[in-house]
């Protein structure tokens, strides 16, 4: 790859819906009902057809626009949109604003949860046994 940060590439064709990525994510980012609230989800579209979904780290991210306090900022090194917990005022607007449903606002902690690419070493990609998630 070139100079830019690496990206998490999703290859739905290879996904068998085993859930290893979810398990890996929950191990790293566990919080509360971990398996249900992982930052990666697998959608079963039809029989034998699975699509993994996680934050796209949009270039023109709606969550960043929704956040009025600068609590969501792009980490230039990884390209991920990250939460600065100490700036977040728990307004929850980022969750609603995300057009793809990748922001989860945790009412118990009062903070949103999103994929931050594990600071440049995404566990989901590392543990996907089928090569359906690539970080490159």
């Amino acid at each position: 790859m070139g100079d830019g940060p690496r990206t998490l590439v999703i290859i739905p064709d290879k996904c068998v819906g085993c859930g290893t990525c979810k398990l890996a994510c929950s191990m790293v980012k566990a919080s509360g009902d971990a398996m249900r609230r992982t930052r990666i989800h697998i959608h079963n579209i039809s029989r034998e057809r699975y699509v993994q979904m996680t934050c796209l780290q949009c270039v023109d991210a709606a969550c960043i626009k929704a956040c009025d306090t600068g609590a969501l900022m792009r980490n230039e090194a990884t390209g991920a949109v990250e939460l600065q917990e100490n700036r977040c005022i728990s307004c929850g607007l980022c969750e609603v604003a995300c057009p793809f449903g990748h922001m989860h606002f945790n009412r118990a902690t009062g903070k949103p949860e999103k994929c931050d690419l594990c600071s440049g070493d995404p566990a989901c990609a590392k543990f996907c046994p089928h090569g359906a998630l690539l970080y490159r």
Binding site: P12, I45, V51, M53, A66, E95, P99, G101, H102
Partner: peptide, 30 residues
């Protein structure tokens, strides 16, 4: 009124938004 995002961004829940995108992805992929 206060955020520079399209007005229709606030009409669906996260699960549905994600599912819709997943369906779109599935079509592209397959």
């Amino acid at each position: 009124a206060h955020r520079s995002l399209p007005a229709d961004y606030y009409n669906e829940c996260s699960d549905c938004k994600r599912r819709k995108l997943a369906v779109k992805f599935a079509k592209v992929g397959g």
